[in-house]
Computed example of a mutant assay.
Amino acid sequence: MQPHVRPFFHRDSNTWSYVVSEPEGRAAAIVDPVLDFDIRSGRTSTASAQALLDDVRERDLDVAWILETHAHADHLSAGDWLKRRLPRARLAIGEGIRSVQKTFGPIFNLGGHFPVDGSQFDHLFGADEAFAVGALTSRAIPAPGHTSDSNAYLVGDALFTGDSLFMPDGGTARCDFPGGSAAALYRSIQRLFELPDATRVFVCHDYGPDGREVACETTIGAQKRHNIHVREGTGEAQFVQLREARDATLAMPALIIPAVQTNIRAGALPEPENNGTRYLKIPLDTL
């Protein structure tokens, strides 16, 4: 089946979020929702998440899942905010989130009271676990490499790749975060390339290379023919060399510190302290 996919672009982080729904019927899922965050003032807002919520309400959709492709480093997740407004939706991520929590929990000194078992989420997908969005047959496909918890989601004929693949002229995502691996990403992409060429691919980020308009949709066939980092015929060693050389030139994402400590909590902000204010930590000389 071919689901309806409605994209939403968050310009501040170049992130695409999606509402994917049955072609006939009310069942839907939200993929990679963004919580607006101004690093200069420390203020959060929910305009981007509200746009997703307005869309599903206007179309009277029944949201079964809020799907995170991984614990993002470039934006804060609105998963928790949406879940509290969509009580029938289950907030889910891949089971690799446990290793990410174990890595970053000590970095942010979250202490023994912070569970590193993924229990902040309603569901942790196992490898190639099947799930349903109404009548849409769906599958969670492990895609480690960018991060150890990265998943892609195949919903009908629509593949949501997270940060594994960008648009063909954008290549692939970095692999130099803790738990990342260029070799693992190469192998993950080869698995995705086994899907039919006509599979629609929806990316999580686009930066408009060479000034083109931002875009979000391509196909597996186009990726295999044209991806600038990993098209058909690119060997693993060649890809690893290219990816690691490029990663060595990249600065840390501007929001990695607030984003990761929020996203390993399933998008929940820290509890208020005794003055009623919430605080995010900045570890010095660590990352």
Rank of each mutant, 00 (worst) to 15 (best):
P3N: 12
P7V: 00
F9C: 10
F9Q: 10
R11S: 11
R11L: 08
S13I: 03
N14Q: 05
S17Y: 13
V20H: 02
E22H: 11
P23S: 15
A27K: 11
A28P: 03
A29G: 15
P33K: 12
V34I: 13
L35W: 07
F37N: 04
F37I: 07
F37H: 10
I39K: 07
S41H: 15
G42F: 05
R43L: 13
S45R: 14
A47N: 08
S48G: 04
S48C: 08
A49I: 06
Q50M: 01
L52Y: 06
E58K: 04
E58W: 00
D60T: 06
L61F: 11
A64Y: 05
H70M: 11
H72T: 09
D74M: 13
G79W: 08
D80E: 09
L82Q: 04
R88F: 05
A89R: 12
L91H: 02
I93V: 14
G94P: 06
G94Y: 03
G96Q: 13
V100N: 14
K102R: 14
P106G: 05
F108M: 08
L110Y: 06
L110F: 07
G112H: 06
G112L: 13
H113W: 02
F114Y: 03
V116N: 14
D117A: 02
H123Y: 09
A127E: 08
E129Y: 04
A130L: 15
F131A: 07
V133F: 01
G134F: 03
R139L: 04
A140H: 08
A143C: 08
A143D: 04
P144K: 05
H146E: 06
D149W: 15
A152T: 13
G156C: 08
D157F: 01
A158P: 13
L159K: 08
D163P: 00
F166C: 07
M167T: 05
P168K: 00
G171Y: 01
G171H: 00
A173R: 01
C175K: 01
C175R: 02
G180C: 02
A182K: 02
A182D: 04
A183H: 14
Q190V: 15
R191F: 06
R191L: 13
F193T: 00
E194S: 15
D197S: 03
T199Q: 01
R200E: 04
R200H: 03
H205E: 04
D210C: 08
V214Y: 12
T219D: 06
A222C: 09
A222R: 07
K224M: 11
N227D: 00
H229R: 02
H229K: 02
R231A: 05
E232Q: 13
G233M: 05
T234A: 00
G235T: 06
F239C: 05
Q241T: 09
R243K: 15
R243N: 15
E244Q: 05
R246E: 14
D247M: 11
M252Y: 11
P253V: 08
P253C: 11
I256H: 07
I256N: 09
V260T: 13
V260D: 10
V260N: 06
V260M: 09
Q261W: 01
Q261V: 00
N263G: 14
I264N: 14
A266W: 08
E271Q: 11
P272L: 12
N275E: 15
K281L: 13
K281H: 08
